[in-house]
Simulated assay, not measured.
Amino acid sequence: MTGGILSIVCPKPVPDAKLRLYLLHHAGGSHTVFRPWLALLPESWEVRLVIAPGRAKASYPAARDITTLSDAFARHLDERRPTPYAMFGHSMGGLVAFDTALALQAGGMPQPEWVGVSGHPGPFHSITRTRPPLYGLPSADLRAELIALDGLPDRVLRDKWLWQRVEPLVRADLEAAETWHPTRHGSLLTRPVSAFCGDRDPVAGITDAANWSQHTNEFLGVRHFPGGHFYFQDDPGPLVRSIVADVSTVLGRSRPHALP
């Protein structure tokens, strides 16, 4: 399945699904980070894994701006009504999810029931704070900064062969994330939003994640877990249970503006 420049994988189609949950990965990563989640999510939910361009077997090169990704994702979603859907994104994926929801809102298209954003300090806040943008650093400096920031899984950064393979992709993804500003459609989403983080994440800790509260009229709160930027890598269970709880709360409401 494709969404323009995006690839979208549906590991297990669910006829008459109660919800479609779209999962969007981090910069330099891929949909495989979410594979362990499949057995933990409700059987009545259909999971769709969104793959940014530039990965193995992709037909398109990596995008260097978030709006290219979010516009492609919005077009894909607008073609697939009326099943209710939600989206969760980690780090770069959270920005794509949020910007997509803003684009859908501005275009009067069916909006997600819920948006989950993880591992990012929110609109108008940089993942590098006072540092120079990561995407323009020399190779050795970029690798060192990502190690310090816990910005990619450790096995990728410590293995020189793996690093050489992913570095161009990482740079493109980081450029997209570090240059994004939600100015096209404003920065206030009228849908429920939850923020997630690791309590020791140097990129987006608990206080940083709270910035998302300023960009929705229905903030469900910050859900924090032990760990760093990839706090869910070893055990996704607590995060998945928290996502299911928040989405179920939203779906359980009686809303007059339900999807047609």
Rank of each mutant, 00 (worst) to 15 (best):
M1T: 12
M1L: 08
T2W: 11
T2I: 15
L6M: 03
P13Q: 15
D16V: 06
K18M: 14
K18G: 14
H25Y: 01
H25G: 02
G28R: 00
G29E: 03
W37C: 12
L40S: 15
L41V: 08
E46M: 09
V47T: 11
V47H: 05
A58E: 05
A58H: 07
R64F: 01
R64L: 02
A72Q: 09
F73S: 13
R81D: 13
G94D: 07
A97M: 06
F98V: 07
L104I: 02
Q105Y: 00
A106K: 03
A106W: 00
G108T: 00
P110A: 09
P112H: 08
V117K: 02
G122W: 03
F124S: 10
H125T: 08
S126Q: 06
S126R: 14
P133Y: 06
P133T: 09
S139N: 12
R143G: 03
A144E: 13
I147G: 09
L149I: 00
R155E: 15
V156H: 12
L162S: 13
P168G: 09
L169N: 08
L169Q: 03
H181E: 15
H185S: 13
T190K: 15
V193S: 13
A195M: 04
A195F: 00
F196E: 06
C197H: 07
R200D: 15
R200I: 10
P202S: 11
A210C: 04
N211T: 02
N211G: 04
Q214K: 14
N217Y: 00
E218P: 02
P226T: 07
F232L: 13
G237S: 10
L239F: 05
V247L: 08
V247I: 13
V250F: 01
V250E: 09
L251F: 01
L251G: 10
R253F: 06
P260V: 07
